[in-house]
């Protein structure tokens, strides 16, 4: 008999506790993003993988060597790297990136490409508004027209220690 009343009243108390919790939720600020209205102020998560980009510096230079490792590792063959063979002034033959094509339509946003790139040449942007009317517009050229490979400062070649550090940075970023 005593346990019966105990159960009933502790049950009531527990129900009140539950209702108190939901009331707290009721009063909390709402998390819904009123999307098109807050387009300007909306904050996107930093690590959101929206679209593959190739960062260029002010002199319209990128870091990609055209090695094609990213294209080889891509599970969907989303990336197509075409290369040019050029001869430099001192007569050396050199491979240079011609076109870096990225097909947004077949990308699964796995992020392998950014992880494997030894030059850290490609990165994710958080842009997610991809809608277009024709499929062909989803294929994008990531290296800007007229851009060229960023020249490394001369001493880097001499110091192998720094070379080792570069891939480490890579891993940190893509993790």
């Amino acid at each position: 008999m005593i346990t019966y009343f105990k159960n009933v009243f502790s049950g009531l108390v527990n129900l009140c506790k539950g209702m108190y919790i939901t009331m707290l939720q009721f009063c909390r600020p709402k998390v819904t993003e009123p999307y098109p209205e807050n387009r300007k102020t909306r904050k996107q998560f930093e690590r959101f993988r929206g679209e593959l980009t190739m960062p260029h510096n002010d002199k319209n230079e990128h870091k990609c060597t055209g090695c094609g490792i990213c294209a080889m590792n891509c599970p969907n063959q989303t990336i197509t790297v075409t290369k040019n063979k050029v001869t430099t002034e001192d007569g050396k033959a050199k491979i240079e990136l011609d076109q870096y094509l990225y097909d947004l339509g077949s990308c699964i946003f796995c992020g392998i490409c950014t992880q494997v790139c030894p030059q850290n040449a490609i990165a994710w942007s958080t842009n997610f508004e991809h809608a277009v009317f024709t499929k062909s517009k989803l294929v994008k050229q990531l290296n800007k027209p007229g851009s060229k490979k960023e020249e490394k400062p001369a001493p880097v070649k001499a110091e192998p220690a720094e070379k080792k550090e570069a891939p480490k940075e890579n891993n940190d970023k893509s993790e």
Partner: peptide, 11 residues
């Protein structure tokens, strides 16, 4: 119901 779930509801 939306407010209890931290949403805005129909808007």
């Amino acid at each position: 119901c939306a407010w209890f779930q931290c949403r805005l509801g129909p808007n």
